[in-house]
Design a protein around this nucleic acid. Structure first.
Lengths: 261, 261
DNA sequence: CCAATAGTGTCTATGAGACACTATCAG
DNA sequence: CTGATAGTGTCTCATAGACACTATTGG
């Protein structure tokens, strides 16, 4: 047991980490979520079909050669794991400045055949429009988007099935408690789009009077605001409907939730 | 740059991590919070003065010898970082089965003079009654409880000031969105005690009609329940007051919060 | 004029928030 | 009978939740 190195080691300025078994790397794994919209085959304008998907890459090397895995890579000594994750995300998808967040460490012994690897897991939320250009550029055989059902049915490399499920649970919770839904929406969106995105990530989210609560209650006033043009007229969109719908955008307001009030 | 080792390395079953710069250890740091109660010097029964405190240890070795630091230690290859944190918590305080939770990784280059150390930070919530026995046993000069103000004013070892502030922000948020307040309370408690604990951790938490909301509104019904004896009579406590107060306990109910409903 | 989306009217029951008020009881 | 804690009465206004209803407009 090499616990308490810093307390039970002999007192020495010449601390030498090489005396101990040390990790064989500090990998990051990034669960990249996106929501794809596919137009339903109808003559009239309709809301698209949306699906939550995760980006996976096909491994070309041992270990788990040929298996699908979460994108990621090894952290350098000169960067933080957060910087590493952002770098890997950019390399994999070409996007920057998206919502990326650390959520857990995976450190089960033998989770990686290459050695003692404690993985730092992140999730990222990427808008499909930002992802689409990269999709074409990549080798389609090696990068793929999969629905949650598809991914859950696959045998991913390492403990990536577990990481994916944990990430999914996390974003489901955050989807309704924070404003991260904005990552899956254009800056200006309609209430239906917002509602659809929420339902796509959290299937059992249901609010029958959603439009009223979001637009005409004090407590939620401030999360989103109506978009108006310079003349102060409401801006509308009819991209999904005959009747034009009011456009909204998220504000910077961060609501405080509490189980006690 | 040794990024993407697993993809850009030559194909080889004889992967050798020693070819790369690897971390020099996988330390954990544990922010152990407790709430102390000290009776106010009064003749009559009063509510105690409560204060949120954090447990720190005085380092005996290089680096940062003599400085106060968060307790923690190095993870072994045979355990997860979560197991390591629980082990260290038990060694430091003697308590098991308390709320301990992972919340972030600290990986800034050069955060540790001993080498490349990515620290896994946990916070733990320990009831003062569980901590009191250990307090006497420990060398008082080396283990101490400090208020948030005291600790923030100290120059802690490593980046432990940052870790402490992050942990504090996290438990402040969780204190009002989850039922972790139970960690600082006896199993059976009065409404005043609960309210006091909430205010101790989150100073700007204020609910003037707290007792009504918690006891007589549908939406919160289920978080706590009245304690009754076998005969079905309400159990009361007068430990802090002349007039006896109803005792409550937390249920297993986990409320779902949402900014959209 | 239909289908699909957008949005309103209206009702009831419940809760939020404010503030004054009563209850208990050791010292 | 005072001080400290515990808890209630009562008011107004806002909101939740349900459900039927109207509005818009391309095809």
């Amino acid at each position: 047991m090499n616990e308490n190195i810093d307390q039970e080691d002999d007192v020495s300025v010449n601390y030498n980490a090489r005396k101990y078994r040390t990790p064989d790397g500090a990998p990051t794994d990034i669960v990249i979520f996106t929501i794809t919209s596919t137009d339903r085959a109808k003559a009239k304008k309709t809301l698209p079909h949306r699906e939550l998907q995760v980006l996976l890459i096909k491994r070309k090397r041992w270990p788990f050669e040929g298996r699908w895995a979460l994108p990621g890579g090894f952290t350098n000594e000169t960067e933080t794991v957060h910087e590493c994750a952002k770098r890997e995300l950019c390399e994999e998808t070409g996007v920057k400045n998206v919502h990326i967040e650390y959520f857990n460490a995976y450190s089960a012994p033998n989770r990686d055949p290459r050695g003692w690897m404690i993985s730092h897991a992140f999730f990222a939320l990427v808008n499909e429009v930002e992802l689409s250009s990269r999709e074409a550029a990549s080798d389609a055989a090696e990068v793929g988007l999969f629905s949650m059902d598809e991914a859950a049915a696959m045998e991913l490399a390492f403990d990536h099935n577990l990481i994916l499920q944990d990430a999914l649970a996390r974003i489901r919770e955050m989807m309704v408690t924070t404003t991260i839904a904005k990552s899956f929406l254009p800056v200006e969106f309609t209430i239906s789009e917002l509602y659809q995105v929420l339902q796509t990530v959290v299937p059992d989210f249901e609010e029958r009077n959603f439009i009223r609560k979001i637009t005409s209650t004090q407590s939620r006033r401030g999360i989103i605001e109506e978009v108006r043009n310079r003349a102060g007229e409401p801006m509308l969109s009819n991209r999904h409907s005959q009747r034009a719908a009011q456009l909204y955008r998220f504000t910077d307001y961060v609501p405080r939730l509490s189980i006690y009030s």
